[in-house]
């Protein structure tokens, strides 16, 4: 691996101005010398800045031809940095803090690890690769870009903390696993793919889902009336993940759309939904 360490020189003066940093990606670093990488342009509001004006860079003299061999390490106060790792296809990005919107959106491969939280739209419309968020994620995790009725179509997202609304919206393939809790509209419009939540979910999970599976191991506080309880099963095998011990309550819906979506709710936490 060829490692590049980007350390923010000083905190951003006006934190309200977002920074568009889609150049921070192994695909863009590849085939460039470190001097060329330092000169890559990022946008702060309507101003252009060279990467080296904000970060001190250290690493190999040249990034080499293959993005797969590149690892980027980011440190600083980065919650206003958007589009990091956007469209990346290979390689690795590690972020030592929290990060701004659109992290890894449209990525097709490689891996991103965030040691802090992510803002909205992390992994939106991703088609492959892996994102591991060790803190919490914002809204639209693994969701779709504004207006797009076709969302995440591959890859894997893992969150150690909690997520906010509309996680996995319009998802078509892939897997999202959340160790903590989720708020509203989990897996909205879900078409295919798998979402696993280990914690509690507030309500309206699976709204307008037309396929795919949502697994909730905590308590779903309130279920939509357009889901029907079908049966109880003992355990649940999930492709590419393994088998989870139940028993589970199986709900089918959303009846407001087609009835091909499935929700599996851990029985001992969700008996209030079948009374």
């Amino acid at each position: 691996m060829k490692q590049f360490i980007l350390t923010q020189k000083k905190p951003v003066i006006n934190p309200n101005i977002p920074i568009e940093a889609d150049v921070i990606s192994p695909d863009i670093f590849a085939k460039k010398s470190i001097e060329e990488i330092k000169k890559l342009i990022i946008w702060r509001g309507n101003r252009q800045l060279a990467l080296e004006e904000i970060f001190s860079l250290s690493g190999e003299e040249h990034a080499g031809d293959s993005p797969a061999e590149i690892e980027i390490l980011l440190t600083g106060e980065l919650s206003k940095y958007k589009h990091i790792g956007e469209k990346m296809s290979e390689g690795k990005i590690t972020i030592k803090s929290s990060i701004g919107m659109h992290l890894g959106s449209l990525m097709s491969g490689g891996k991103i690890v965030v040691e802090g939280d992510t803002h909205d739209f992390a992994g939106a419309n991703m088609t492959g690769g892996e994102i591991h968020i060790q803190g919490n994620a914002g809204h639209y995790l693994g969701g779709s870009m504004r207006g797009n009725w076709r969302g995440m179509s591959g890859g894997k997202i893992k969150v150690d903390g909690n997520v906010l609304n509309e996680c996995g919206i319009w998802m078509r393939k892939g897997i999202i696993e959340i160790a903590g809790s989720a708020t509203m509209f989990l897996g909205m419009h879900l078409h295919r793919g798998t979402i696993i939540v280990h914690g509690d979910v507030i309500e309206r999970a699976g709204a307008e889902m037309t396929g795919g599976e949502i697994i909730i191991l905590g308590k779903l506080h309130k279920n939509l009336p357009s889901f029907e309880f079908k049966e109880t099963i003992d355990e649940l095998p999930i492709e590419g993940y393994g088998t989870i011990k139940g028993p589970f309550l199986v709900f089918v819906g959303d009846y407001a759309e087609r009835k091909q979506g499935k929700m599996f709710l851990l029985k001992k936490k969700n008996e209030h939904l079948i009374d």
């Binding site: 779709s144 870009m145 504004r146 207006g147 797009n148 009725w149």
Partner: peptide
């Protein structure tokens, strides 16, 4: 207005 996903490309 209806097609932000189209512009972004």
């Amino acid at each position: 207005l209806l097609r932000p996903e189209d512009h972004i490309i």
